[in-house]
């Protein structure tokens, strides 16, 4: 392979890695939107909290002398998911549920307030400095191409991100399509009033979507925490913005759309940084979003809206 194509391949690999984590966070936006039609601006902060919890658990376990890394990571994953889910649940209960039935924008402002609150809460609890962790999963899995031209590497960490993302997505898809709760969930997205009439506790279903979204955001928090090795209280905002963009890109409300949107956004960013000055990568990402929406006003996989009279 030529140098140019190897370089291209490497950038695609980088883009898919970051894209899969966008996808994980985007699920939370898209599921909540699909059911109650609100943008949960505090979702990015849940990801940040998940990352912090993962850091705390990993450092704590390693500090206590536990050495089996897979076990440590697994425990961290579970704890991060549980804590983040509790946050997701509590936020819904405190900030959104009392507002149900009023204007959608009311809940949006409440979400922005919640986001400011959580950010500053973590600053007070954990300090505003970057917290860094030594690399735990290092080394590369595949290296090909020659040193003289360009060497493509896929690291273990990247592989781990792909695998965990894939597993989470599969489990989620199965859950949504096969389980009773999943069916109720889809029914709610279709018509929440009707679902309620059929005797399904819609409040519970809504709470559950927040919990699932938060748990997936915590997975992303753990993975990105390991990948970058750094966490601070302000990572949630920009990650949330990107993930939300991904969700809209794919068609908000659609779960496969969120996955696709995340990957497309990640790859676009990587390729922009590869062939243009990297300071323009956000401009290109947002321009792409505008363009796609102009030609497909409901996103790539979104259902076209039917205007009912």
């Amino acid at each position: 392979m030529t140098e140019a194509s190897l370089y291209f391949l490497q950038q695609i690999i980088n883009g898919l890695t970051i894209g899969s984590t966008y996808a994980l966070i985007a699920i939370g936006y898209t599921m909540v939107y699909g059911i109650i039609g609100m943008i949960n601006f505090a979702h990015g902060e849940i990801y940040m909290i998940g990352s912090y919890v993962a850091f705390i658990v990993i450092t704590g376990l390693l500090g206590m002398g536990m050495v089996a890394l897979p076990v440590v990571l697994f425990i961290a994953l579970v704890v991060a998911m549980v804590v983040a889910s509790s946050y997701g649940w509590a936020i819904e209960r405190v900030a959104y549920r009392p507002l149900r039935g009023s204007n959608r924008l009311i809940a949006l402002i409440s979400a922005i307030g919640m986001s400011i609150f959580l950010q500053n809460y973590v600053v007070l609890a954990q300090g505003s400095r970057d917290v860094a962790m030594p690399p735990l999963v290092s080394g590369s899995l595949v290296e090909f191409g020659s040193l003289e031209t360009f060497q493509v590497t896929i690291s273990w960490m990247q592989l781990l991100i792909w695998v965990v993302t894939l597993i989470s997505m599969t489990v989620l898809t199965l859950f949504i399509s096969r389980s009773r709760m999943g069916r109720a969930c889809r029914a709610c997205a279709e018509d929440i009033g009707m679902t309620n009439l059929l005797g399904i506790d819609t409040n519970r279903i809504i709470a559950m979507t927040f919990v699932i979204g938060a748990a997936l955001a915590a997975v992303a928090g753990l993975l990105l925490g390991l990948y970058y090795g750094v966490v601070n209280p302000f990572i949630g905002f920009i990650a949330g913005l990107k993930a939300f963009t991904a969700a809209v890109l794919g068609g908000i409300g659609s779960i496969p759309g969120a996955m696709l949107g995340g990957l497309i956004l990640g790859v676009t960013e990587a390729l922009t940084a590869a062939y243009f000055p990297s300071e323009y990568k956000d401009v290109v990402a947002f321009s792409l979003l505008v363009l796609i929406l102009l030609f497909r006003p409901t996103g790539i996989l979104g259902k076209p809206e039917v205007e009912k009279v």
Binding site: I112, M114, S115, I116, F117
Partner: peptide
């Protein structure tokens, strides 16, 4: 300060 501000935004909406 900002913690209060965020909290008040939520409370005012409620």
């Amino acid at each position: 300060r900002m913690l209060m501000f965020g909290l008040l935004m939520v409370l005012m909406m409620r």
